[in-house]
C-alpha cells in the first residue's frame, strides 16, 4: 500500500521559534491515525504545517503527499491535492456565508449539487448556510460546520483537530457520525476508508471512530506509536505525565 503522507525530519518554526523537531510520521493510504498528546505538544502545529499555513514555516525536512514533495506548495495547491483540515478554532469571516463555500465547490463540480444538498439535510446544516462562517457558533456547532465542509470538499486526506473537545455526549455522537461518513469512501464497504489524522487530547472520539494506529506527541516530536486502544488505555490510566516519564526514559536510555 502506498503512503498518503510521509513526513521526514520535519522542523517547523512559528515566529522564529522551533515548535516541531525532527519529526517523522507515515500514514499509509486508507488508514486513519490518532494523534494524542498533552496541550502544547505541537499537535496543531503539525496539522497546520501539513496543510501549509504560511506562519508555520518549514525550516527543515520534507512532507510528501502521495509520494510527491509538497513542502514548497502553497495552501491552495495542497488543498487541491486533497488535503483538508477541520480546525479547532477556525476564524470567523464577517459577511461570508457557509453557503458560499458550498457554491464554490458546486461551481467546480456541478454534478455534485444534489449530493451536497443531501449532505446538508442529512446533517441538519440548513440553518448554518446563511450565517457568517463560524460567527456566534457554539463549540459543537463549530465542529459540525468544519466537518461538514470536509464532507462537502471530500478530501483524500482529512485532518481533524480536537473534534471531541468541549462538547457534550450528544454532540460527540453526531460528530462521530460525521467523521465516519467523511472517512467512509463507499457506504457499503466499511473497510475501504479515506485516510485521516485525528488529533485528540482526551481520546473520547475514539469511542466512536476506529483508528488504525495512534501516536503520542511530546515536545514537538512523536514519542511513541502503537495500537490506539492500548495507548489510550495507558494514557487514561496513568495520564500524560507517565507517558512523558516513559518516553523521556527511553530517549535517555
Amino acid at each position: 500500500m502506498t503512503n498518503i503522507l510521509e513526513i521526514k525530519h520535519l522542523c517547523v518554526e512559528v515566529d522564529g521559534q522551533e515548535l516541531l523537531h525532527d519529526l517523522d510520521l507515515t500514514i499509509p493510504d486508507g488508514e486513519v491515525h490518532a494523534l494524542l498528546g498533552p496541550n502544547g505538544s505541537g499537535k496543531t502545529t503539525l496539522v497546520m504545517a501539513i496543510i501549509g499555513y504560511p506562519e508555520y514555516r518549514v525550516a527543515k525536512g520534507q512532507i510528501l503527499f502521495d509520494g510527491e514533495e509538497i513542502t514548497k506548495l502553497d495552501i491552495t495547491e495542497r488543498a487541491r491535492l486533497g488535503i483538508a483540515v477541520a480546525q479547532q478554532r477556525p476564524p470567523t469571516i464577517a459577511g461570508v456565508k457557509l453557503r458560499q463555500i458550498l457554491d464554490f465547490v458546486i461551481e467546480n463540480a456541478p454534478e455534485r449539487a444534489q449530493e451536497i444538498d443531501d449532505l446538508t439535510r442529512a446533517f441538519q446544516m440548513e440553518e448554518f448556510l446563511d450565517r457568517d462562517i463560524n460567527a456566534g457558533l457554539s463549540g459543537g456547532e463549530i465542529k459540525r460546520s468544519e466537518l461538514f465542509q470536509l464532507l462537502v470538499t471530500r478530501p483524500r486526506f482529512a485532518m481533524m483537530d480536537e473534534p471531541d473537545s468541549g462538547i457534550d455526549l450528544e454532540a460527540l455522537a453526531l460528530v462521530g457520525d460525521m467523521i465516519n461518513a467523511l472517512l467512509s469512501k463507499e457506504p457499503d464497504r466499511p473497510a475501504h476508508r479515506r485516510a485521516g489524522l485525528i488529533i485528540t487530547h482526551t481520546g473520547r472520539i475514539l469511542d466512536y471512530v476506529h483508528a488504525d494506529k495512534a501516536h503520542i506527541m511530546l515536545d514537538g516530536r512523536i514519542g511513541c506509536s502503537g495500537n490506539p486502544l492500548i495507548l489510550l488505555d495507558k494514557v487514561r490510566q496513568y495520564g500524560y505525565e507517565e507517558c512523558i516519564r516513559c518516553i523521556l526514559g527511553r530517549r535517555e536510555g
Partner: peptide
C-alpha cells in the same frame, strides 16, 4: 488562508 484551505486561490 482558511478559504484557501477549502481550495480557493488566494
Amino acid at each position: 488562508a482558511y478559504l484557501q484551505s477549502r481550495g480557493m486561490s488566494e
